[in-house]
């Protein structure tokens, strides 16, 4: 067990080190997120205070598109120079490779959210004060399921030139239930002033579990020809 965790951390540590060295992904993803916020914010009118439940929807869009870029980049690292063959030939389970990538993707997405959210709050007066922790909890849970599916498909899609659009179009429809569920919960929180219920979180956790288990199982089968 400890060995497994150590291997996962080794893989994630390697991904993050490469990211720290190249600064390719995070800069790109954060700028994309900010651009989305600016475009949508200006579209809604920069002068007015944007209410919580619209703000959350805009942030969601930024996280989703940024996330897809993260999945793509972290997998592209392995496609270069046959590094993936090195992982496959190593004495580790495919599941560890999946978990390592998932963790890297989650960390990158959290970093994205940590930068983009304050920017949005400052620039456009996004008002999340009604339920800040509810927002964090719901977003984090949704991101987890989203990243599971994204990691799976990033592994399946090869780094062909069409990958950019392709990955997004594969991942978004599959993740619609997550988007709908979290949106409904966030509308309840911010527009209707409801408290965050155990039921809503329970559904999200259940969805995450389904996405995680299915992605993990399928991932085992996709890395070989």
């Amino acid at each position: 067990m400890i060995r497994t965790v150590r291997k996962i951390l080794l893989l994630t540590g390697k991904d993050l080190r490469i990211e720290a060295r190249t600064r390719q992904t995070l800069g790109l993803v954060v700028m994309l997120g900010i651009l989305i916020i600016v475009v949508l914010g200006l579209g809604l009118g920069a002068e007015q205070k944007i209410p919580g439940f619209i703000a959350t929807a805009i942030l969601w869009v930024a996280y989703l598109f940024g996330g897809v870029l993260c999945f793509e980049k972290t997998m592209a690292v392995e496609r270069h120079d046959g590094a993936l063959a090195g992982l496959l030939a190593a004495p580790i389970d495919r599941g560890i490779i999946f978990a390592g990538k998932l963790l890297s993707n989650l960390i990158l997405m959290l970093a994205l959210a940590a930068v983009v959210t304050p920017v949005a709050i400052v620039l456009f007066n996004f008002d999340l004060s009604a339920a800040p922790w509810g927002f964090v909890a719901v977003t984090a849970l949704s991101m987890f399921g989203f990243a599971s599916v994204g990691t799976l498909f990033a592994g399946a899609v090869s780094s062909s030139r069409l990958q950019g659009g392709l990955l997004a179009i594969l991942v978004f429809p599959i993740c619609l239930p997550l988007v709908i569920t979290s949106t409904q919960i966030l509308i309840g929180l911010f527009r209707d002033g409801e408290a965050l219920g155990a039921q809503g979180l329970g559904i999200l956790v259940a969805f995450d579990a389904v996405y995680l288990i299915v992605s993990w199982l399928v991932f085992e089968r996709i890395l070989e020809p």
């Binding site: 490469i18 120079d81 590094a83 063959a85 190593a90």
Partner: peptide, 18 residues
């Protein structure tokens, strides 16, 4: 058993940025 096998492939199997 992979612990006892070493591979050298066409590609370098290295991370170019590290």
């Amino acid at each position: 058993i992979r612990r006892r096998i070493g591979i050298i492939a066409h590609q370098s199997i290295l991370y170019r940025d590290l």
